[in-house]
Every structure is written in C-alpha cells, then in structure tokens.
Amino acid sequence: MNVFDFHATALDGAPIDLARYRGKVLLIVNTASACGFTPQYKGLEEVYRQFRERGIEVLGFPCNQFGQQESGSEAEIGAFCEKNYGVSFPLFAKIDVNGAHAHPLFRHLESEAPGLLGTERIKWNFTKFLVGRDGRVVKRYAPRTPPHALVADIEQLLAR
C-alpha cells in the first residue's frame, strides 16, 4: 500500500483520488490557520512554486485537533490561505490526523514514517511528510522544520 491508494475530499467538497498524483513528489502537511506555525504557508507556497514544474505537489490538510487552531469552515480556510499567503497548492477538507477518526491517509503516513523515538502520533500542526514518485513515504519532518529546510531532500527526489 502507498499514498496513491487513498482518497480525500478537496476543500470544495469534491472527492479526490490521490492516484491522480502518481509520478509526482508529494509534500503532505497537516495545517491550521491560527497556529504559531501558520506563517509556514508562505514557505510551502514558495516550495510549490519553485518546484511544481519539476513535479512536486504540496497537499495541505487542515486539522482542528491541536488547540482548536482550525475552527473555520472550508470556505473560510480557503479564503484565509489565499488572502494571507497566496496559497495555490491543493487544500483538502478538514480532517483528524490522530485518534479514532483519523483519516486513513494520515494513519498510513504515521506508520510509514514514525516521529521521534518511534512515536506515530502527530504532535502538532505543520507536521510534514515527503513522499517519493512511487507513493512511498520518504521522510517525516517536525512542525518546527521550515519548508525551505526540505529543499535539498526535495531536489534529491525530483532528480530521481
């Protein structure tokens, strides 16, 4: 099983088969609009614009599980991200990333790339997962890791 075996719902409610991204490098991130890390949207957009022509997709998954920092509706989330950070990469409907109602994609990401000391649970907003063109999870990055710090790893995957 790999990332391309999953489905998600776009911010506008449309069903998305992640197989549409087959052959691309993916940067999958759980996001929030009222978090200390929210300015990372700018860096994620920069990475997307810098590398999209070479085959990267940044996929943002809003989540309200950490400090209730994503309480808005999907429409409000989209408007906020576009207005404040110029986000043009795909955003998905709000999901849970931990617990009984965690989205299956994030269960998979967590098991394939555990965090510190082997813990699978996502600790906070803006945890990032880098996925190769084959749909396999390559690496997990902590929320504090800014998007520009992933550039060397992204370059390596895009060169393959």
Score class of each variant (00 low, 15 high):
Y41Q: 03
K42P: 13
K42H: 13
G43M: 09
G43R: 10
E45W: 10
E45Y: 01
E45I: 04
E46D: 02
V47L: 12
Y48I: 03
Y48V: 07
R49T: 14
R49D: 12
Q50R: 15
Q50M: 14
F51S: 13
R52C: 12
R52G: 08
R54C: 09
R54A: 13
G55L: 08
G55W: 11
I56A: 06
I56E: 02
E57L: 02
E57K: 01
V58T: 05
L59W: 08
L59M: 06
L59D: 10
G60F: 09
G60K: 03
F61W: 01
P62R: 08
P62T: 09
C63V: 09
Q65P: 13
F66A: 07
F66I: 06
F66L: 11
G67V: 02
Q69N: 06
Q69T: 02
E70R: 06
E70N: 05
S71T: 05
S71D: 14
E74Q: 08
E74Y: 03
E74A: 13
E76W: 04
I77C: 00
G78Q: 10
G78V: 08
G78C: 11
A79Q: 07
F80L: 05
F80V: 10
F80Q: 02
K83F: 13
K83Q: 04
N84R: 09
Y85I: 01
G86T: 10
G86Q: 11
V87F: 08
V87G: 08
S88F: 10
F89G: 05
F89A: 03
P90W: 09
P90N: 12
L91D: 00
L91W: 05
F92D: 06
F92M: 07
F92P: 02
A93F: 02
A93W: 07
K94L: 08
K94E: 03
I95L: 01
D96W: 09
V97Y: 04
N98S: 12
G99M: 12
H101I: 10
H101Q: 15
A102I: 10
A102R: 05
A102T: 00
P104H: 07
L105N: 10
F106V: 11
F106Q: 04
R107F: 02
E110Y: 05
E110P: 11
E112K: 10
E112M: 13
A113P: 06
A113W: 09
A113Y: 09
A113S: 04
P114Q: 09
G115F: 00
L116W: 15
L116C: 13
L117V: 15
G118E: 15
T119K: 15
